[in-house]
Write a protein that binds this DNA or RNA. Structure first.
Length: 595
RNA sequence: GGGGGUGUAGCUCAGUUUGGUUAGAGCGCCUGCCUGUCACGCAGGAGGUCGCCGGUUCGAGCCCGGUCACUCCCGCCA
């Protein structure tokens, strides 16, 4: 028999009454009546109430034992008398009458309590992560994560995929995020990079003839954190398939996501066949390529209105004349909202760095008019035109933004979220998935004034190769797609370019010579030159999926040991200094700028 | 790199608007009482460089300047 326990802390029931049992666990809570002491003993599985009276020699010991100490209890299972059962507890019909106990590990006074549901500062939670993880909610989040990963593995195997592992120490790639670098001792002055994703490797697996690959893959990117983005490392369900078209990937992912979300939540999946929205359409209607489709608000283009003689809104008219555009958001039936509702949104917009949001409400007495600060600038005819164009009715309000396309998209996409939140019109019991498709192959980079790859340089451009117009590279679309759920970008994927000549051509548009391509992507180019299957894939972010399933807004809530926003592990004290000897071995010298 | 928010007891927070005696509450901790609690109860107690540095002032938790930490966002994230 195991020396620590005969049962775990959630197993005992009326079946075991009168049995002598051993339980081990954490002292969750004490209720000391002076001559009678109740404790809740907790382990991974649950909680059991144990009771001890003052005639027992161990009474004084237990009274002195601090919460979160680990103890072993030996005693008899007894039925709780009528009226003293706890229906909220699985083991609430019984309790263990303590006969003896052993302190297995004493706890000091706690920096943060495990008991209760209070919020604690993140730095304390991270430093004492082992305490934080004992708390019910965090514990359940991590269990959920584990189950999700197991489920994904088994579903992928069922779908005919095999899991392959790829190197962690690899080479730095010029495109994409900043790399984490690892110095090579045997090759002084040279560095490995941790993979930002196993992108090239998974393609090489296809070229090696394995057909369907997946991996729960760690990815490393040295970029700044966000609530939904850990600094440093995260996990992707990385997958790749040979002899496929875009729709084949979509079918696999839709099946997987629907099964997964149905398995782990009771919330409704809005469309089991995920809507396909082109990048262009998404930017026009939502101002972003990761729209939250639970949000009914749509952005409308109304620049033309400001060329009318009977519109006197001179600030906007002037801007429109010099090339600015005007787009609008309509909120349904908001005429009775207080002035503060509108002013708050305008104020909020200014805080976001916009010049604010002009607004008015459509009203009608003898004729249609605009009510609100800028309403008077619009004639009845122009208002009718706006209503027709934006699908607006009397009682609706209109928020207007004017500026260049990029600014407008940004502020209205944020405003869309903000206004919907204020109006409380987002249904939190839904998951709204969609595909964003037809991404442009290239974009114009304002900083460098160059044409750069907008997503993945290995993507296959759309259309027949001989028809591609490389003189207008910004018009070339790629078989490149994102999957978005509730406004969270879950992943990007693409059908890959498996034709070396085309790849040289595409890279040359982005300013890479053939020589450079050969040097920087030698593995890939070489592999594609010896018979490569058409292939494609995608890589949904595991952390974000679990975050959605757990209903959390922060990725650290579903990660065992995350780093803080400064990419520090407060528990392990990483990153840390290393000694001179290690530096010397690697041929490195520190040259840190003093603050 | 930039912007916002926060920082007061071990923890959660009030006090800052309008500067003024010894900075409060709840939880936790310590002591005592308590045999049916499950957020046990009751009584008492300890615990504070008000993030840090500087300034204004007769006087600063409160006002000003700087700085640090955490966090959210922008940039960045093919």
């Amino acid at each position: 028999m195991n020396k620590y326990r005969t049962h775990n802390c959630s197993e005992l029931s009326e079946k075991e009454i009168n049995k002598i049992v051993h339980l081990s666990g954490w002292l969750h809570r004490k209720r000391d009546h002076g001559n009678l002491l109740f404790i809740d003993l907790r382990d991974h599985y649950g909680m059991t109430q144990c009771v001890i009276e003052n005639n027992n020699n161990f009474f004084k010991v237990l009274e002195k034992t601090k919460p979160e100490s680990v103890i072993k209890v030996t005693g008899k299972v007894i039925k709780r008398s009528d009226g003293t059962e706890n229906v909220d507890l699985k083991t609430g019909k019984i309790e263990v009458s303590i006969e003896s106990l052993e302190i297995l590990s004493n706890a000091k006074e706690l920096p943060m309590p495990v008991f209760g549901e209070q919020d604690y500062p993140e730095d304390i939670r991270l430093k004492y992560r082992f305490l934080d993880l004992r708390r019910e909610e965090m514990h359940q989040n991590i269990i959920l994560r584990s189950k999700v990963i197991s489920f994904i593995r088994s579903e992928m195997l069922k779908l005919g995929f095999l899991e392959y592992q790829t190197p962690i120490l690899t080479s730095s790639s010029p495109e994409g995020a900043r790399d984490f670098l690892v110095p090579s001792r045997l090759n002084p002055g040279k560095f490995y990079a941790l993979p930002q994703a196993p992108q090239q490797f998974k393609q090489l697996i296809m070229v090696s003839g394995f057909d369907k690959y997946f991996q729960i893959a760690p990815c490393f990117r040295d970029e700044d954190a966000r609530a939904d983005r850990s600094p440093g490392e995260f996990y992707q369900l990385d997958l790749e398939m040979s002899f496929v078209e875009q729709e084949d990937i979509f079918n696999v992912i839709e099946k997987l996501m629907v099964n997964l979300f149905e398995q782990f939540t009771s919330k409704k999946i809005l469309n089991k066949k995920f809507p396909r929205i082109s990048y262009q359409e998404a930017m026009k209607n939502y101002g972003t390529d990761k729209p939250d489709l639970r949000n009914p608000l749509i952005i409308h283009e109304i620049t033309e209105i400001f060329n009318r003689e009977d519109v006197k809104f001179h600030i906007f008219k002037k801007m429109v004349k010099t090339g600015s555009i005007v787009r609008a958001l309509i909120t349904k039936n908001t005429k009775d909202r207080p002035r503060s509702f509108f002013d708050n949104i305008d104020k909020w917009a200014k805080e976001q760095g916009a010049s604010g949001l002009a607004y008015f409400t459509l009203e009608q007495d003898t004729k249609i008019k605009g009510k609100g600060p800028v309403g008077k600038f619009f004639s009845e005819e122009s208002l009718k035109e706006i209503m027709k164009h934006c699908d607006a009715e009397i009682g609706d309000s209109i928020f207007l933004a004017c500026g260049n396309k990029k600014e407008i998209e940004k502020i209205l996409s944020l405003a869309r979220d903000k206004i919907a939140e204020d109006l409380d019109i987002i249904n939190n019991d839904q998951f709204a998935f969609c595909w964003i498709v037809d991404y442009p192959m290239y974009e114009f980079d304002e900083n460098s004034k160059n044409i750069v790859f907008s997503h993945n340089p290995f993507s296959m451009p759309q259309g027949k190769i001989e028809n591609l117009n490389f003189d207008k590279p910004l018009d070339i679309k790629a078989y490149q797609y994102d999957i978005v759920c509730n406004g969270v970008e879950l992943s990007s994927g693409a059908i890959r370019n498996h034709i070396p000549e085309l790849m040289y051509k595409l890279f040359s548009v982005a300013g890479y010579s053939n020589k450079e391509v050969n040097k920087k992507f030698s593995g890939m180019i070489n592999a594609l030159s010896y018979g490569a299957p058409p292939h494609g894939g995608i890589a949904p972010g595991i952390d974000r999926i679990v975050m959605l399933l757990a209903g959390k807004e922060n990725i650290r809530e579903v990660t065992l040991f995350p780093m803080n926003q400064n990419a520090q592990d407060l528990m392990m004290d990483a990153p840390s200094e290393i000694d001179e000897k290690q530096l010397k071995e690697l041929g490195l010298k520190k040259d840190i700028k003093k603050n």
